[in-house]
Amino acid sequence: MSAPSSHQPAPARVPTPPSRVAGAALATGLGVVAWATGRKPLHAAGSTWAAELRVDSPLPDLGVPLLLQRGVHACTVRVSRAVGTPEGWWDVGGLAVRLPDAGTRGRPADLLFATTGTGRLSRYVLRPVRRAATRPLTTLLPTRAGGRSLELLVRPLGEAEQPREYELAVSVDGGRWTGVGLLQLRRRLPDTRTRFDPIVDELEGTRPPAWVVGLREPAYRWARRLSRSRSPEVGALPVGGD
Rank of each mutant, 00 (worst) to 15 (best):
residue 84 G to F: 07
residue 84 G to R: 01
residue 84 G to D: 03
residue 85 T to A: 15
residue 86 P to Y: 00
residue 86 P to N: 00
residue 86 P to V: 00
residue 87 E to N: 00
residue 89 W to P: 05
residue 90 W to T: 06
residue 91 D to F: 09
residue 92 V to N: 13
residue 92 V to R: 09
residue 92 V to E: 09
residue 92 V to S: 11
residue 96 A to N: 06
residue 96 A to D: 06
residue 97 V to K: 05
residue 100 P to F: 02
residue 101 D to S: 14
residue 101 D to H: 15
residue 101 D to Y: 10
residue 102 A to V: 04
residue 103 G to C: 05
residue 103 G to K: 04
residue 106 G to L: 08
residue 106 G to T: 02
residue 107 R to K: 08
residue 108 P to F: 03
residue 109 A to T: 04
residue 110 D to K: 09
residue 110 D to P: 10
residue 110 D to M: 11
residue 111 L to K: 08
residue 113 F to V: 07
residue 114 A to R: 05
residue 115 T to G: 07
residue 115 T to V: 07
residue 116 T to V: 07
residue 117 G to Y: 03
residue 118 T to D: 08
residue 119 G to K: 06
residue 121 L to D: 03
residue 123 R to M: 10
residue 124 Y to F: 15
residue 126 L to F: 13
residue 126 L to D: 00
residue 126 L to Y: 05
residue 127 R to D: 04
residue 128 P to F: 05
residue 128 P to W: 02
residue 128 P to Y: 02
residue 130 R to S: 11
residue 130 R to V: 08
residue 131 R to M: 15
residue 131 R to C: 13
residue 132 A to T: 01
residue 132 A to E: 00
residue 133 A to Q: 09
residue 133 A to W: 11
residue 135 R to L: 15
residue 136 P to K: 00
residue 136 P to Q: 00
residue 138 T to H: 04
residue 139 T to S: 15
residue 139 T to W: 06
residue 140 L to P: 07
residue 140 L to Q: 01
residue 141 L to S: 06
residue 142 P to H: 01
residue 144 R to I: 04
residue 145 A to I: 10
residue 145 A to L: 14
